[in-house]
């Protein structure tokens, strides 16, 4: 009725467990319907094409450099990973990698499938009808999240398999077991990363009645956290933990670590670092490494790489979880009426 009327509408715990025989779990039905909607939607086609083109370009560009890389890293087990993590044109500036593209554009994927998840139901007036069916209210959020994430997984898997396929048949690079494991893990990390943006976009779709507002807010968040953070981040980090000539080495290391953590406020920074660890077995640490601390150049086994990246991975999962929880709570507290 009124705007302020929303706050008091919690759902008691007693509700949560109820199951009525003969009725399928509501979220599966909603997820199935939304998945079908997404697949048939224009935005799916556009995003698939966009990522497909990028994938094709990456393969084309990589094929030029991979020969050189192969000569350098002859016999090295990481050649297959180079398809994804390798820079196409190792110029001084911005290295173009598939991983970099995912860090940059993955958020857009999450935003595209999430920004109107709930507000579209409101706008069409279908929400009251939907929640009046024998489902729990959280089934709506869960179903929509699962549907959107499934579509994202589908797009990612398609593009990655395309790159891998071209790599196998055209370039003759084959993955080892270790590489396949790293790639699969990286795939999951990428899904979590995009899942974070999806959850954030869904939060916006719950909080803002109008899809346009939600989209604008999300695009702003994307620009700040993904694009500008590379520029602003270091400045802020420098202000937070300035480095002085007079500092001891320990102080300098401390300041650098703080700076690094400030940069990690952006999930895309976390994702990039994680990707580095997972796809580059020679990367042995995430923190500051002093010249005399550097280990003998060697390749880490997968499990060791995973351990190095573990804190970041947990942080990313926690962030996604927190975002989803926020979406969940704010939706549960909202009034059904438009």
């Amino acid at each position: 009725m009124t705007e302020g009327a929303r706050a008091t509408d919690g759902i008691p715990e007693s509700r949560r467990k109820e199951r009525v025989p003969g009725i399928p779990a509501g979220w599966t039905v909603i997820a199935a319907k939304d998945f079908a909607d997404h697949i048939l939607s224009i935005r799916f086609t556009i995003l698939l094409l966009l990522l497909g083109v990028i994938g094709a370009y990456m393969v084309y560009a990589i094929s030029g450099t991979i020969r050189d890389a192969a000569q350098v890293a002859s016999g090295s087990p990481q050649l297959f990973l180079f398809l994804f993590a390798g820079a196409a044109e190792p110029t001084e500036g911005f290295a173009v990698t598939f991983v970099g593209f995912v860090a940059l554009l993955g958020p857009l994927l999450g935003i595209a499938f999430g920004f109107d998840a709930v507000s579209a139901e409101r706008a069409e007036g279908t929400l009251p009808r939907l929640v009046a069916q024998p489902i729990h209210r959280d089934d709506v959020i869960n179903g929509k999240f699962v549907a959107a994430l499934s579509v994202i997984v589908l797009i990612f898997a398609a593009v990655m398999l395309f790159i891998a396929g071209v790599g196998l048949f055209r370039l003759g690079v084959t993955p080892t077991g270790d590489e396949a494991l790293r790639l699969a893990t990286w795939f999951l990390v990428a899904v979590v990363y995009v899942g974070f943006w999806l959850a954030l976009a869904m939060l916006a779709s719950v909080l803002f009645r109008r899809a346009a507002t939600a989209a604008l807010v999300m695009i702003s968040a994307w620009i700040v956290l993904v694009l500008f953070w590379r520029l602003i981040g270091p400045v802020i980090a420098g202000l937070v933990a300035p480095q002085r000539e007079t500092d001891t080495i320990a102080q300098q290391v401390g300041a650098l670590t703080t700076q690094q953590n400030v940069l990690r406020i952006s999930p895309s920074q976390m994702f990039s670092e994680l990707s580095g660890v997972l796809l580059d077995p020679s990367q042995t640490s995430l923190g500051v490494v002093l010249p005399d601390e550097r280990a003998i150049p060697s390749l880490l086994p997968f499990v060791q790489s995973l351990l190095v990246g573990w804190p970041l991975l947990i942080a990313l999962i926690a962030l996604t979880g927190a975002c989803f929880a926020l979406t969940y709570i704010s939706f549960m507290r909202q009034e059904v009426r438009a």
Partner: peptide, 17 residues
């Protein structure tokens, strides 16, 4: 709510599809 909503048909005001 589930048992109730299974047996109660509801036509909301300004119904949407």
């Amino acid at each position: 709510p589930l048992a109730v909503k299974r047996h109660v048909g509801y036509l909301p005001d300004n119904v949407g599809f």
